[in-house]
Design a protein around this nucleic acid. Structure first.
Lengths: 345, 345
DNA sequence: CCTCTTCGGGAAAGCGCTTCCCCAGTCTAG
DNA sequence: CTAGACTGGGGAAGCGCTTTCCCGAAGAGG
């Protein structure tokens, strides 16, 4: 009818004709159908012809005929953030081992965009969609997401979440709260007394959980509440700005906990720029244990999350056949004390 | 015929029926066809029905009918490397502004896999494919890639390269050689005399160009050739190992140039672990100016590449209509001297 | 008042596959 | 030797869209 493209692309029909077999046989020879054998000599002839013509099946057409595609959709907040690129890396490893492709979409931390991307992946008939960005503390957004995912599953798709288990969907739960609590406990043991928390925006549950978990941890071991809590952007520059704010306050903490490593690095830079030293003047701790950041000086105390593995778990999970109850896999971070928080005295 | 999936998904036909119009009209109402107007009241009715039913067009079916998709394929060597995730970030920005999706594939620095991924994107009928990984110094691989891309273009697809301009294809050329040369020159001016080069594997042209450019630069200003050249993996750990090797040699350089920042950071770590200090005992310089690495201490002298912008340029380029001659856009890095290479004396 | 356009709705033809269904040819068994 | 059971090839339906083509209705022109 239309075909505006200048495409003289080779199709399965061309292969079949050139090999002197029917379309059906060519298809079966190339993909090995379950119900029917193709005589070896015919199969060979088809395969050779296909290779000779550089035949590449049209994935869209296959998807239409089969009803599903070979792509996994991944939704992240910001792919330039090493947290997400590590997860992507794991997702790609998992996908690769199943012969799948991964399509990435980023939300810029907007719940609306997240929803749009999920809808778009539904349109793409993605085999599965993985939502790796932290949930938002916004019940309306969650409701919308729930509805969208219901549609997706009705259409035969699958979904999995990372971080918070808020909907009846397969989830890899990162125990941000408990992990931050352990960190707080260990830091108190090291002798720290006056804490500040450098948090991200409240609507991001990951930030909230880490900050609150940390404070809970302080209380649990009888340490006082933080002397300061700054809220800033969930980025290096946010960490920088928040730290400037914290250092400007009259009573300076002896340790600042930033809710992620990227912010912690910003905080350390701010400290240096104010003429102070980490950890002599203020100690700093982060969260995530981002690989690229392991060589900052002083080495950062943090909570290690197996980010690449998380990506792989998510793929495995979302590729399993559905079960009655949603699966939940809990991952606890491992506290890693380094030189940015030496024992006091 | 089959439809094994339990899909009771809503299709355009459902929308048309529910709205009491024909399939054709529903299609035109939703996508606004070029040749025919739809009466406003009908359009409204269709649009409302579609929204009410949560209709999401099947992208595969649209792709089949239209002959092209809304996805851009991006091929990188290793997405966990911040070099590539920055580029991906730019590509995603560019794609987003055109309403496109991006699918990522990674090669693990294998030419064979690169070729497979391009073929796979051809099968996906990707609107365009961007090859962001450095070319390999392997004429056979290049030949294969050329053939594959010819097929891709015959099928109506488009392709663009980053880094080296080796094939008659739109390319964003990174002037690795010239930039490394400038770096060498400036370093000599700072007073350095005894250089070592920490290179990646030879078969990666990016590594080769940077290393050779640097050496050319040394010669051009009358400095002697490097006292050592180590070849190592193109990663943080590669940088570490290569540095250990360099430091073990009897005559120690006063400056080590690592062909990328990630290796440079590994090199600095190795230096520290040997009980030496940067820059007092050895100065270190890198290449790329990776954002996440800007806060290492001492701050790294490097060559800044606008990585995110490169991603955007590539998208713009590959979305332009074809021209007779392939477009080439050259990008020169900017030398940034920081404290890892202070002036000597 | 009739013919010539223009407008816009609907039927139907594909797009490139997979798989169902029919069928001829072979085997096996009675 | 013939009926029943298998094999495996090929025709054709159908996946969900877009767009061409046909057509009746409404408006313009004489």
């Amino acid at each position: 009818m239309m075909r505006s493209q200048s495409s003289d692309n080779v199709t399965l029909k061309d292969v079949a004709n050139a090999a002197g077999v029917s379309l059906a046989t060519a298809s079966r020879a190339i993909n090995g159908s379950p119900d029917r054998q193709v005589r070896p000599d015919l199969r060979m002839r088809v395969l050779e012809t296909a290779a000779r013509l550089h035949y590449q099946p049209n994935a869209q057409a296959q998807a239409m005929a089969r009803g599903w595609t070979d792509v996994i959709g991944l939704v992240v907040h910001d792919i330039a953030d090493p947290y997400f690129s590590s997860i992507l890396s794991g997702v790609m490893q998992g996908a690769e081992s199943h012969g799948l492709l991964v399509t990435v979409a980023s939300t810029g931390r907007s719940a609306t965009k997240e929803l749009q991307h999920v809808a778009s992946f539904r349109g793409q008939r993605a085999r599965a969609v993985i939502l790796a960005g932290s949930r938002f503390d916004d019940s309306e957004a969650i409701e919308g997401l729930h509805a969208e995912i219901a549609q997706l599953e009705r259409a035969g798709g699958r979904a999995a979440f990372l971080s918070q288990h808020l909907l009846p969907i397969d989830t890899v739960v990162v125990e941000n709260r408990a992990s931050a609590q352990s960190l707080a406990r260990q830091l108190v043991e090291l002798g720290y007394k006056r804490f500040a928390v450098l948090a991200g925006p409240d609507r991001l549950m990951t930030s909230k959980d880490r900050a609150e978990g940390f404070m809970d941890g302080l209380l649990a071991v009888g340490a006082g509440p933080p002397v300061a809590v700054a809220k800033a952007d969930f980025s290096r520059d946010g960490g920088y700005d928040g730290m400037v704010e914290i250092l400007a306050s009259p009573d300076r903490p002896d340790l600042v906990f930033a809710v992620n490593d990227v912010m912690a690095v910003g905080a350390m830079a701010a400290t240096r720029d104010q003429g102070l030293t980490v950890p002599q003047d203020v100690a700093v701790a982060g969260f995530d244990d981002i690989v690229t950041l392991r060589d900052v000086t002083p080495p950062l105390t943090t909570v290690r999350l197996p980010l690449v593995d998380l990506g792989r778990y998510l793929v495995e999970m979302v590729l399993q056949p559905r079960e009655d109850a949603p699966r939940v896999r809990r991952v606890r971070g491992e506290v890693i004390i380094r030189e940015s928080t030496p024992p006091i005295r």
